[in-house]
Design a protein around this nucleic acid. Structure first.
Length: 862
RNA sequence: GCCGGGGUGGCGGAACUGGUAGACGCGCCGGACUCAAAAUCCGGUUGCCGAAAGGCAGUGCGGGUUCGAUUCCCGCUCCCGGCACCA
């Protein structure tokens, strides 16, 4: 009588065993160090499927490396500051600190139930003063070095709540709570000079060969290095400076456009109420680039004239809403002939459009209809006076040289990347350690007074930062002169917190330094895993911060993350009902019963609670707004952690989005039951640990070949390719073969023992609890994670014959068995013994025969 | 709008360097076991034609390169991620 698989009993017992043997500690064990890091979670309340997936990937990689004999660090912490805690506080009246810490408690318990080999002694939370004091300390160093500086920046302003809004809180140009049209407002903020590092951040992308190409491309485009020219246009007594990537088109500049915030626009508006009104109109709406880039292009003539630096022509100066103050100089020379946005604007306002570069592919230029060819770099200059006939690149150089001669411009490199504004007008964040003194100005908090501790009992109400009304925090003597002064109430962008947490994990207990020598021992992170949505901002800031810490002499690494895996999103079906006013109520998929037709399509969906129908709303990213988050906890309770882990690794490759499916979880559960039963039935006949078979019959030899092919494939999939879905598929496939195999002698039983020992080790990174239990059932001592990774026996891979596919004109017509390495003529001869092949070849002339050795033969006839 | 990625059976996906399209799993169909059901086990399952052998079509759409294209190239389309204050 064999035991059945009961994860509810098995899993906690196995976790106790791990804990008793200290298996999850990074410092335990020997071997090379391997730092496996997952993006730490925001403690939003409950673990969601995205977390589950992220940490399972990380755990599979960690355990795989542990089995390779490495000393693995897999830490965990909490990205604990941020907006959702303030929103929860407004909704429930609970201070963000309490809400956050309660969530951490709950989520830590959930993570522990999933059996992740996390070194919990290194746990950290960014809202703890012991962590954020080092944000403050380092900020002061950056201030000393001139990397941190103060200037104004544009924010979304809700005129009713009198508060700054995050981009997320601006919906269709209106405040999310008040519905009031949002305004742009200029306020003073602290910035970090990330642009000083733009070149290095761009160039060292080339060294990151363990990163996905798409992430490197996105970062390179974000940094956006472009070679061009800075050109000065005289405008009365002022000068309008512009940057252009196409100085070769200078002779086609027909007007100038400046941002609404540009000083010249302001100046021109003083005597021009119509223009002032237009500029005010430009001040409405959100500040996000997506909003600005999609809004209708609008502009107004300022009446000012700029002088073309070469022709001396007067160009009208317009204010245009598509010119960004934050990019370049806040002004452009408009070349409608060769820039799509300028073209569209010129067409709308009847401004001249002039072709100055011929089309590279020839063809007619039509100034009523834009074609993408007009912006292509190529062709030669036309309508450009003495520059006519030069190629576009010769024209580029000649015009820049001419501008330099006249003192009106020079070649320049421009980055799209802007300096990083880190000030947030919010309570639940790391206080910026500055004191404002009426006499001394902005005074840095002295190091010995750090940390500036955030009061934790405040409850924000939506109308601004409660720190502004908290006298205990606000009032403090000036460190310089001792006079009454006020603390800065802005807090830091939470991206600051997440830009160096991976360094703190290496020495979280150090209360005298930000990091110590242990950082250099563990860094760089060997494997980083996180959502693709972080491909640009977080990863760029973390790279930047690492370089800042390097330049401060705190660490030696240039780049923090050697290898990066960007996991896809977790998606789920959405369901809703619409009321008369068109307002949608979203229902959680777990509460909806779906009837499917015979072919698998959805017939009907009803809410289980009332049996009434709900509408399917499509498959979307699991999110609160659509109420389609599936709680992993319920699944863990039903099936155990191993089943949920197995499904989430099996359902899709890690980089792709994953559609949640309860039915798929059932499949994973069935496989584990079969695996358990298979091992048990072998064990029931007696275990034979450590012995290997020799003399095997043909069927057994084939099974052993398949076993060692599987070991090779799974190792490659888990290590090099990181396609855990195909690794699991290969294990399942082999198990199917193994369970069909019947042992008829001692050697075959030894093979079955070898096979189960190998299967258990191959699956161990994915389903660690079950694997650990089965390892012991197979008569092994100690932990499966200390038992090593199975080795491929090369001699088992040799086969007597291979199957070669035979094609005629590219269509499969047969298969032949030949000796490995058989040459073209002998494979062709074998193929001509196949009736079906002969039928397609006879009566025709063989024109060509192509052999892909051991795989395919294509006979081309005609 | 700009940058990046994706689209393959009823569904999730596989096919790694241009070489058998659909591995593995789900679902469905049939069968075994059972008084019955569940669980489990066995078989089938891209579509069309065919009793079968086999044939034809087929990887979002339109074209191209090649003996051979899911894979490479050109054009389109739809979906997803990011766009600097969501994290």
């Amino acid at each position: 009588m064999t035991e059945s698989y009961r994860p509810g009993e098995l899993e906690p017992a196995i976790r106790e065993f791990w804990e008793a043997h200290d298996l999850d500690r990074a410092e335990s064990g020997g071997g090379e160090r391997f730092y496996c890091l997952s993006m730490f979670p925001y403690p939003s309340g409950k673990l969601h499927m995205g977390h589950m997936r992220n940490y399972t990937i990380s755990d599979v990689i960690s355990r795989y490396h542990r089995m390779q004999g490495h000393r693995v660090l897999q830490p965990m912490g909490w990205d604990a500051f941020g907006l959702p805690a303030e929103n929860a506080a407004m909704a429930n009246g609970v201070p963000p600190a309490k809400w956050t810490r309660d969530n951490i408690e709950h989520m830590r318990g959930q993570l522990q139930q999933l059996g992740f080999a996390i070194d919990w002694e290194r746990e950290l939370a960014t809202c703890d003063p012991s962590y954020y004091r080092w944000n403050q300390w380092f900020f002061l160093r950056l201030l000393e070095r001139g990397i941190a500086y103060k200037k104004t920046g544009t924010v979304n302003w809700d005129p009713v709540d009198q508060t700054v809004l995050a981009n997320e809180q601006v919906i269709d140009g209106k405040g999310w709570r008040t519905g009031a049209p949002v305004e742009k407002r200029e306020i003073p903020m602290y910035y970090l000079r990330i642009t000083d590092y733009a070149d290095e951040l761009l160039e060292s992308l080339d060294t990151l060969d363990g990163w996905p190409e798409r992430v490197r491309t996105m970062q390179a485009n974000w940094i956006g290095k472009s070679e061009g020219a800075e050109i000065a246009f005289a405008c009365g007594l002022d000068t309008i400076k512009v940057f252009t990537t196409r100085p070769d088109t200078l002779m086609g500049a027909t007007f100038m456009a400046v941002a609404a915030e540009h000083p010249l626009a302001r100046q021109a508006a003083e005597g021009n109420p119509e223009l002032a009104a237009f500029i005010a109109e430009c001040q409405t709406g959100g500040v996000s680039e997506a909003d600005i880039a999609t809004q209708e292009k609008k502009g107004m003539d300022t009446g000012l004239k700029a002088v073309h630096p070469i022709t001396g022509d007067e160009l009208p100066v317009w204010v245009a809403n598509y010119v960004l103050m934050a990019y370049g100089e806040g002004a452009i020379m408009a070349v409608p002939g060769h820039d799509e946005r300028d073209f569209e604007f010129a067409l709308k306002y009847g401004l001249p459009i002039r072709q100055v570069v011929s089309l590279p592919e020839g063809g007619e230029y039509d100034d009523r209809q834009w074609h993408d060819d007009y912006a292509v770099k190529g062709g030669h200059l036309v309508n450009s006076g003495r520059f006519d006939g030069l190629s576009w690149s010769e024209g580029f150089d000649a015009i820049v040289a001419e501008l330099e001669k006249r003192g009106a411009g020079h070649a320049r490199t421009q980055f799209r990347l802007r300096d990083w504004g880190i000030s947030r007008q919010r309570y639940w964040g790391c206080p910026i350690p500055i004191i404002h003194c009426p006499d001394c100005g902005d005074v840095p908090v002295p190091d010995e007074d750090l940390p500036v501790v955030l009061p934790e009992e405040l409850v924000p109400d939506g109308s601004g930062n409660p720190l502004n009304h908290c006298a205990d925090f606000l009032d403090t003597p000036c460190p310089k002169c001792g006079a009454a002064a006020k603390r800065e109430t802005d807090t830091m962008d939470t991206f600051v917190d997440s830009s160096w947490y991976f360094l703190r994990y290496t020495g979280p207990d150090n209360d005298r330094a930000m990091v110590d020598e242990r950082a250099d021992q563990w860094m760089p992170v060997d494997q980083y895993i996180g959502g693709i949505e972080h491909a640009i901002l977080h990863l760029l800031y973390a790279r930047f911060w690492t370089k800042l810490m390097r330049d401060e002499g705190l660490v030696q690494v240039d780049e923090p993350f050697k290898r990066l895996l960007t996991q896809g999103m977790v998606l789920a079906e959405t369901y809703y009902r619409e009321d008369e006013s068109g307002r949608k109520t979203w229902y959680n998929p777990a509460d909806v019963a779906v009837q499917r037709d015979g072919k698998g399509g959805i017939n009907s969906a009803v809410l289980e609670a009332d049996g009434q129908p709900v509408e399917p709303g499509g498959i979307e990213k699991m999110a609160k707004s659509k109420n389609n988050g599936v709680d992993p906890q319920a699944l863990v309770d039903t099936y155990g952690a191993d089943t949920v882990r197995l499904f989430s690794m099996f359902a899709a490759p890690p980089e792709q989005s994953l559609e949640w499916s309860e039915a798929g979880v059932e499949g994973a559960w069935r496989f584990l039951k079969r695996l358990h039963a298979g091992v048990q039935s072998h064990v029931a006949e007696g275990v034979l640990p450590g012995r290997r078979p020799d003399e095997l019959g043909p069927a057994a030899r084939e099974l052993r070949t398949r076993l060692h092919e599987t070991i090779g494939k799974v190792g490659d999939d888990m290590g090099r390719r990181q396609t855990f879905n195909t690794a699991i598929a290969a294990i399942m496939e082999f198990c199917n073969e193994l369970q069909r195999f019947e042992a008829d002698d001692e050697a075959a039983r030894l093979l079955i023992q070898e096979a189960w020992e190998s299967v258990v080790r191959l699956i161990a990174p994915v389903t660690p609890h079950l694997a650990e239990a089965l390892w012991r059932d197979l008569g092994q001592d100690g932990s499966v994670f200390e038992g090593g990774w199975p080795r491929v026996d090369e001699s088992a891979l040799e086969r007597a014959a291979v199957t070669v596919v035979v094609q005629v004109n590219g269509k499969v017509r047969g298969r032949v068995e030949v000796a490995p390495g058989a040459d073209r003529d002998s494979v062709q001869a074998a193929a001509m013994a196949d009736d079906n092949v002969v039928r397609h070849v006879e009566d025709k002339t063989v024109r060509k025969v192509i052999l892909v050795p051991d795989k395919l033969l294509n006979i081309v006839v005609g």
